[in-house]
């Protein structure tokens, strides 16, 4: 009796583990079964979320029977996932550095295409209580300024801007992501921060943006590429082409991105 129970328990356990692991593999099995899958999985930088989600219905309408699935995260996280074999068809990075990483591992099909650029903007709480109107004001000691940490792309960009403007900002905090910076500013914890133009636009009324001329010196370029691991490279490439095409560019422009 005991042995029977043990066998059953072990069996259940193994089948549970198997079920869990087959979850991830399920889609690729299905993909293999079909001749050419009509679905495309896009790994995209978090800052592209709004724009890409607007592109999804248009792309699906232009390619009947196609489904687009997104995975939005930090670009470095996405590269790491792709390197670990995540089932991605398209990679849209927020910087060339991470795309280069993917290319160096031969994960990219063809040559990545630059499809958008983004620049930094000063962000302040509504009403701009700290009366910030230039990048030099951020170096003032009595303001609480939050930046991205230099380890993440928006922080690296901020560091370059500081260099270009010849100032040294003493941040109250070096945040992990753009979202963290925006939150700290929107809640009034911080008087100012540095984020991308598109982030300020996406945040709506909760913050106020202040443009500054030095931002032009630091331009972040977004590349996109189909991935060599894709089960349907043609479809993946079609999505990349859609992003660089007229319709995609219009949506990106509306979100505040500039053309490369």
């Amino acid at each position: 009796m005991n042995r029977l129970v043990a066998t059953v328990a072990a069996g259940l356990l193994l089948s549970t583990v198997a079920a869990c692991s087959s979850d991830a593999g399920g889609s690729s099995d299905d993909a293999r079964a079909a001749d050419k899958p009509r679905s495309v999985t896009v790994f995209a930088a978090a800052s592209l979320k709004t724009s890409f989600e607007q592109m999804k219905p248009k792309f699906e309408a232009a390619n009947p029977g196609t489904t687009v699935t997104f995975n939005f995260a930090g670009s470095s996280d996405l590269v790491a996932q792709i390197q670990q074999g995540a089932p991605a068809d398209v990679f849209a990075s927020a910087d060339t550095k991470n795309m280069d990483k993917a290319a160096a591992d031969d994960l990219v099909e063809g040559t990545p295409a630059n499809f958008a650029t983004n620049t930094l903007e000063i962000v302040t709480p509504p009403g701009n209580p700290g009366q910030v109107d230039s990048i030099d004001d951020l170096a003032g000691s009595d303001l609480q300024v939050v930046l991205c940490a230099p380890e993440v792309p928006c922080g690296a960009a901020a560091e370059s801007v500081e260099k270009a403007a010849g100032i040294d900002i003493k941040p109250a905090s070096e945040e992990q992501s753009v979202t963290d910076v925006l939150n700290k500013v929107a809640t009034g914890e911080a008087d100012a921060g540095l984020v991308y133009v598109t982030d300020v636009k996406a945040a709506g009324d909760s913050v106020v943006g202040v443009t500054f001329p030095e931002s032009a010196d630091v331009v972040n370029t977004y590349p996109i590429a189909a991935l060599s691991g894709s089960k349907n490279v043609e479809l993946a490439q079609a999505f990349a082409d859609f992003v660089t095409g007229t319709e995609g560019q219009a949506i990106l422009e509306a979100a505040g991105f500039a053309k490369p």
Partner: peptide, 11 residues
């Protein structure tokens, strides 16, 4: 990370 922020040696 939500409340205190992130600054070397401080938070």
């Amino acid at each position: 990370i939500t409340f205190a922020g992130s600054l070397e040696g401080v938070t």
